[in-house]
């Protein structure tokens, strides 16, 4: 029972991390809080569902296409909307929130709700680990999560584009003077965040079904993880996902599944009271203002 809970807690944590990492990356690089994150997640799932079931493309191709399309949507969102309100927090928040709302409610209006709206699992087998059955999809999620974190670390520390990302994350104006096109980098950051949301959707959705409500859930989870971990800190996201993931799964197993949401809410309130900028938050109360 205990080991099994641990296994599922790890899986749950990685799922949370995959949901949050895109949102966090975009914010960390360009300071854009993409409140359409959950909507992009759902958008990519629907696109891949449509390609799969309406055009009859093979799953891997449709998944790839949907990731590309979502990445493009992210870039377009920045180029046509966010670029005009760059730097105005109020406008950025409202604009991304409005876009997300429009996407999700459009799918709801079009009637894309039901159990048939789901994506196939990659490989349909399961294992017996630590006293519980774990299917291949969940193992893939954990593997992909690990690969993704390692890949992002390599990318931001060892490629010139990644270093440029870190440059503008630290000081946009200085980056500008060094000949880095910050608008281009910000476009990339939003589209990269969108792409990560799509990737997460492609691999997580097969466990459940696609629904507009899920979009809000993903946004809530991503925000919760970022608030606890500290916005803009990848390490914080990983730690926070594991904290919430384990806490949720253990309450589920030992208390009741009803209480899982309360655990995250309590965690948020505790972290906010103790350390408002999150566990690993770089956003200090005053220092960032100087």
């Amino acid at each position: 029972m205990f080991l099994g809970t641990v296994v599922y807690a790890v899986i749950n944590s990685v799922i949370l991390m995959l949901m949050a990492i895109g949102f966090n990356l975009t914010f960390g690089i360009s300071g854009v809080a993409n409140f359409a994150h959950g909507a992009l997640y759902i958008l990519s799932a629907y696109v891949s569902w449509m390609l799969l079931n309406m055009l009859g493309l093979p799953f891997f191709i449709s998944a790839l296409f949907s990731i590309l399309i979502t990445t493009l949507v992210g870039a377009l969102m920045y180029r046509f909307v966010l670029i005009r309100v760059r730097g105005q927090v109020l406008s950025e928040v409202i604009a991304t929130f409005g876009i997300g709302l429009a996407i999700l409610e459009l799918f709801r209006y079009l009637g894309f709700v039901g159990f048939e709206y789901t994506l196939p699992v990659f490989i349909d087998t399961s294992f017996f680990v630590a006293g519980v059955y774990v299917d291949m999809q969940r193992i893939l999620i954990v593997v992909l999560g690990a690969v993704l974190v390692f890949g992002l670390w390599l990318f931001t520390h060892h490629t010139s584009l990644g270093l440029a990302f870190r440059g503008i994350a630290q000081d946009e104006r200085t980056a500008l003077t060094l000949g880095i096109d910050t608008d281009w980098i910000a476009t990339l950051s939003v589209s990269l965040g969108a792409g990560l949301a799509a990737l997460a959707a492609t691999i997580i959705i097969p466990l459940g079904s696609i629904s507009p409500g899920e979009g809000y859930d993903v946004l809530i989870k991503a925000l919760a993880v970022c608030i606890i971990g500290g916005l803009g800190s990848t390490g914080g996201v990983i730690v926070a996902s594991f904290i919430i993931g384990f806490a949720e799964r253990f309450t589920d197993s030992y208390i009741s599944s009803h209480w899982t949401m309360i655990v995250s809410l309590a965690a948020i309130l505790i972290v906010l009271t103790m350390k408002p900028s999150g566990l690993f938050g770089k956003q200090k109360e005053l220092e960032e203002r100087i």
Partner: peptide, 9 residues
Amino acid sequence: GLFLVVFIV
């Protein structure tokens, strides 16, 4: 949602 985006931008 669209109102929000159009008006804010």
